[in-house]
Design a protein around this nucleic acid. Sequence first.
DNA 1: AAAAAAATTTAGATTAACCTAAAAATTGAT
DNA 2: ATCAATTTTTAGGTTAATCTAAATTTTTTT
Lengths: 220, 220
Amino acid sequence: MQNSFTEENYLKIIHALSGREGLEVSTNALAESTSTRAASVTDMLRKLAEKGLIHYKKYQGVRLTESGEKVAINVIRKHRLWEVFLVEKLGFGWDEVHDIAEELEHIPSDHLVERLDSFLGHPRFDPHGDPIPDAKGNLTEPDYLILTDVEIGEKVRMMGVLDHAPSFLQHLDRAGITLGCTLEIKEINEYDKSASVQIEDKQTLFISLEVSKNLLVQRR
Amino acid sequence: MQNSFTEENYLKIIHALSGREGLEVSTNALAESTSTRAASVTDMLRKLAEKGLIHYKKYQGVRLTESGEKVAINVIRKHRLWEVFLVEKLGFGWDEVHDIAEELEHIPSDHLVERLDSFLGHPRFDPHGDPIPDAKGNLTEPDYLILTDVEIGEKVRMMGVLDHAPSFLQHLDRAGITLGCTLEIKEINEYDKSASVQIEDKQTLFISLEVSKNLLVQRR
DNA sequence: AAAAAAATTTAGATTAACCTAAAAATTGAT
DNA sequence: ATCAATTTTTAGGTTAATCTAAATTTTTTT
Ligand SMILES: [Mn+2]
Ligand SMILES: [Mn+2]
Ligand SMILES: [Mn+2]
Ligand SMILES: [Mn+2]
């Protein structure tokens, strides 16, 4: 039996919320992320458990089974490949692609995904810096740091974002902060923890703590 | 309110069945084409009528309203553009793309369709020779002839197919009959109405009446 | 113009994915 | 360890899209 659109969304969200350690995910957290009520989540969990896609015992939270993990990673692979397509081939901005990819990720042909992957040149990362699982389902999260963990004086390379909201991405565009650019922390303001950051050895500007918390970077 | 996947399929099928004269379509014909039962069709017709997408009076068959026609043509536009993408960019065969396009045609972003159209270079026809409606919803069916209407000795160009079944398309591939190729009717067999046809001034082969009935061609 | 056949609609159910309100289980705070 | 707060589940409903079986309308044949 095929998994529905809705089931795939649940699996993807369970994957995201359980993090790399595969922690248990709570009913309420899922209700929040799926924009449904806890009672509806319970219904769906029973169904997913019956299909062998999650481990579920009442009141104990859920984890993906191997088979559920496989489905989730495949959906993530499709989501991220389609985002690359939209940005690289169709010229969309990185702030415009999430909702469209949210639909495209449920198109079911394996043949399609593999051809799309070739057409795009087997990209390793999506337009937000997130890694793209390979055809076998291997997904390795690179361990970047968050900008708030960088010391004054350090030069880092911008590698990804934690928040994918269009408004955040547009804010970065206006500041000239793009994937791969160089950032150097000049100073950190005691009062509000905002940072003065030099971008690409050019202009220096203030970055709020809110923004710093959502920027993934790499030492260099 | 948005139209569901199912509603879009009904509208597209009503469009196809009512032909260019916009004839009434019967409940049974729709049940056949949608692979559902007549009772289910009746339910859906009531809904589509309430939304103003079809003209419907009990026992009288249906026609699309202007608004329904617009939706149907937009779905057809998306279907055919995605088919061009799959063949031209991803390298699929013309026999492989229909089912995938059947899913992609329901992805809702207008912005996406217009960018896809540009990316593909505003193609006028899909891989099966079917015309692609423009962004304003204009769809002009070229008036091709069916191969059975061509006289002995005439040279024609192959412009499209009436049957889109993979098995038929593969049969044409094996015979070397592709879109745009030249065909000359050498003779017609009295017994079974099969035709001897010369393809691209090269090999001559027999084509059954069944095949001839599904080939659209143009005099030249 | 009946009667028979065919097409269509209505009636009454089912399934997936949701909901609200109430009950039960777990957690956490004294 | 007990009680209150929080979380989760159960109970009972709704809506969209389907179904079968029965009723009704239209069409065709005699
Ligand atoms: Mn996204
Ligand atoms: Mn992304
Ligand atoms: Mn098709
Ligand atoms: Mn086509």
